[in-house]
Amino acid sequence: MLTFNNPTTVEEAVALLQKTDSRQRVLAGGTDLLVQLRSGRIQAQGVVDLKRIPELRTIRTENGGFRIGAAVSGAELGEHPALSTMWPGVIEGARLIGSTQIQGRASLGGNVCNASPAADGVPGLIAAGATCTIVGPGGRRVVAVDAIAVSPGKTSLAPGEFVVDFFLPAQAAKGGDAYLRFIPRTEMDIAVVGAAVNLLLDASGVCTHARVALGAVAPRALLVEAASHALVGTRVEAAALEALAAAARAACAPINDKRGTIEFRTQVAGVLAKRAAIIAYERARSRA
């Protein structure tokens, strides 16, 4: 039988995880963990519920940006107007995870640490240049979000470590981001392809900086530098978008599985990158 603990401080959680062996699973939202435990896909000896730790449940402004607790639910993210206004693409990604019911539970921490290449919350965070705070027996460390997932189901976290929070820096005055995913239905599916674009414009509307991240087209979400280069120095016009699509497709290394084919994922990655770039560009342009 599984043990169950619900510590109320980070220190208590670290101590618990250190004391027990590595087959303790941390529970943030539980929307992946409970399904995996039930199906027998993962084996565990215990569950450590992090939701009673206030630090993991709050959203705070910091240096013009936001610090988001790892166990904040998707619904709570969506209810934070300032956050949605500054980082609409990040929040769109987080809000696309599952149904209304899933949104009541699912967390960014869980979405990142489940390490699915198709995680909807991840490309937006990567494109935004978000970092996360990891805590463990060795104390705290800060890493870029794209450094967490290694391959499907595997993270770079050491035994006993967990993610405390995410930091989204202040968005630039003329910056805009967007996330789009492809699913066969309109809801309830896992992304077949995901694309996030975050870009920065100068006063004349020329893109000076861009980050493009793709989901579900490789063993983990990708930051595609060549795709970023396709946008920088352009007004995100047709030729730039075609170059972006080509770069996005070139970066794809997907698999055939029950959700899509290699050809489909590669083709649609280009389409979604273009569409996300157009939305991000419009958002950046319309920003005061």
Partner: peptide
């Protein structure tokens, strides 16, 4: 107050 699936919440929580 939050809408959830009861199958994805542990009783122990």
């Amino acid at each position: 107050g939050r809408l959830v699936c009861a199958c994805l919440v542990l009783g122990a929580e």
